[in-house]
């Protein structure tokens, strides 16, 4: 199993921490992981992205141009990365922010209103966890429990009181993805 993922959005949407959380969770499950952030000047106010690769085998290139999955949180990233998803791949996108989604028919395109869902949980910051929960409902590369374990490492201790909220967000994402599958 190798899953090559691009996660992209605006700086501040929790794009890098989403990838890191996934990476930690993979490590908890004894899988290999490579997390490669964009660290250029574009991070300040512009788009941020990270490549996260999870595999049971040795991971070769940390830099990729084609992905199994794109998790997209803003319109510019949709335009930049929709063509980079391999045929048969997956796009999970934040449908509160993104108006023009991919029209590709050779991949699975899933709209998740993560910001709405996060607002309903009274914390917009967990929109990234809604997205991650939705993604994991489609590709169960790590367990939800491992994500919670990972969050204990990613989040500074003073935020550990938000772990239940994060779990709720993850489960909300899962629910949103499952309701999509039912409709389809």
């Amino acid at each position: 199993m190798t899953e090559e993922i691009i996660i992209a959005g605006f700086g501040g949407q929790g794009v890098l921490s989403m990838g890191q959380t996934l990476g930690y969770a993979a490590m908890v499950e004894n899988k290999n992981v490579t997390w490669m952030p964009s660290y250029g000047p574009e991070m300040r106010g512009g788009t941020a992205n990270c490549i996260t690769i999870v595999s049971e085998e040795t991971i070769s290139s940390p830099i990729l141009s084609r992905f199994d999955t794109a998790i997209i949180l803003n319109q510019p990233s949709m335009e930049k990365f929709e063509s980079k998803v391999k045929p048969g791949g997956l796009i999970v996108y934040e449908s509160t922010n993104i108006i023009h989604a991919s029209e590709r028919t050779d991949i699975d395109v899933c709209a998740i209103p993560a910001s709405d869902a996060a607002n309903k949980l009274n914390n917009i910051k967990v929109a990234n966890m809604v997205m991650l929960g939705a993604y994991l409902a489609k590709r169960s590369i790590v367990k939800l429990d491992s994500i919670i374990e990972a969050l204990k490492k990613v989040l500074p201790e003073r935020y550990h009181n938000t772990l239940p909220l994060n779990r709720e967000a993850l489960e909300k994402g899962k629910e949103l993805m499952e309701s999509l599958s039912v409709k389809a």
Partner: peptide, 10 residues
């Protein structure tokens, strides 16, 4: 190099 320095792995 910058990539090996910045990337995270196990």
């Amino acid at each position: 190099d910058g990539a090996i320095g910045q990337m995270m792995e196990r």
